[in-house]
Computed example of a mutant assay.
Amino acid sequence: MRISRVVAGTVAVVALASGCASSIGGSASTGSSVTSGPYTCRPAVDASACGQVGKIAADDVKRHGGGGAATLVQFVASTREKANKAAGGDIVPGDQKVYLIQITGNFIGGPDSYPCCTAPSPRPFTELTAIVDASTFMGLDNGMSSQPADLSSLGTVITVQ
């Protein structure tokens, strides 16, 4: 069960005008990889997408990690509607091309991580998801949970190292 959904504008993920639409729906061979700055993605994906997703994950871990590190960062190309459904969030109709990013680690939720009118729970979360526009990397939705989303249901899962 997803604990939260935060709409764009309330979360400062990253807003960079960097194109990666060519990687949406594309396939990559499982034995290949691509490196962008300090990040390596397997299988290979557009280098810009690899670097931007790596940076988004690093920023989100700093924001919600309580000083810890991510143990796994993965993402998949999808549409916003399908990504939100897979992440356990609200239904957001449409075919906007996005990346669903899932970060595994130990995360602490802020005030935006709980349903309206409920007190924050002291329990940590193990999964943080972010949905970003595939062409601008603008943050659209995010959430925290104790259950991972099934990224493989959406397509080829890319692992960021």
Results as ranks from 00 to 15, higher is better:
91 I>E: 11
70 A>K: 02
81 E>P: 00
70 A>Y: 09
68 G>A: 14
94 G>V: 01
92 V>K: 09
105 G>A: 07
107 F>I: 09
94 G>N: 08
105 G>I: 06
59 D>E: 08
51 G>Q: 09
98 V>I: 08
92 V>L: 07
57 A>W: 00
93 P>H: 04
94 G>Y: 08
91 I>A: 13
62 K>Q: 14
103 I>K: 01
53 V>F: 11
76 V>M: 04
67 G>P: 07
93 P>K: 02
67 G>A: 07
43 P>G: 01
103 I>Q: 00
59 D>C: 09
65 G>M: 09
79 T>F: 12
97 K>W: 06
79 T>C: 03
57 A>F: 06
70 A>R: 03
107 F>W: 01
67 G>D: 13
68 G>I: 10
75 F>V: 04
47 A>F: 10
52 Q>D: 15
87 A>L: 04
63 R>C: 06
74 Q>A: 01
81 E>T: 06
99 Y>A: 00
108 I>Y: 03
105 G>M: 08
52 Q>N: 15
65 G>C: 12
65 G>A: 09
56 I>Y: 02
68 G>E: 13
54 G>L: 07
70 A>F: 11
108 I>H: 01
68 G>F: 13
85 K>E: 15
85 K>V: 15
49 A>I: 10
61 V>C: 03
79 T>R: 08
71 T>N: 11
56 I>S: 03
95 D>K: 15
82 K>T: 12
109 G>Y: 00
107 F>K: 03
109 G>F: 04
106 N>Y: 05
104 T>Y: 03
93 P>Q: 02
53 V>S: 07
45 V>G: 00
64 H>N: 15
47 A>R: 09
75 F>N: 02
56 I>R: 00
108 I>L: 08
91 I>T: 12
59 D>M: 11
97 K>E: 00
84 N>P: 06
84 N>Y: 08
106 N>H: 10
70 A>V: 13
92 V>R: 02
55 K>S: 12
50 C>N: 05
73 V>I: 15
100 L>T: 05
43 P>K: 05
84 N>W: 04
65 G>W: 08
110 G>K: 04
99 Y>N: 03
53 V>E: 11
86 A>H: 04
53 V>C: 12
86 A>Y: 01
82 K>Y: 11
54 G>K: 05
106 N>I: 06
50 C>V: 07
108 I>C: 02
106 N>P: 01
90 D>I: 15
46 D>R: 03
102 Q>K: 08
60 D>P: 01
44 A>N: 14
53 V>Y: 06
101 I>K: 00
91 I>G: 12
103 I>V: 13
70 A>G: 13
78 S>E: 11
81 E>K: 15
63 R>E: 14
64 H>D: 07
68 G>P: 06
89 G>D: 06
47 A>G: 07
108 I>V: 11
75 F>E: 00
98 V>T: 12
58 A>I: 10
101 I>H: 05
89 G>C: 01
80 R>S: 10
94 G>L: 02
60 D>H: 04
97 K>Q: 10
44 A>S: 13
52 Q>P: 15
47 A>Q: 13
58 A>S: 14
107 F>P: 04
94 G>W: 11
43 P>W: 08
78 S>D: 14
91 I>Y: 12
90 D>C: 12
109 G>A: 05
107 F>D: 07
90 D>W: 15
63 R>W: 04
84 N>T: 06
87 A>F: 02
70 A>T: 07
90 D>T: 14
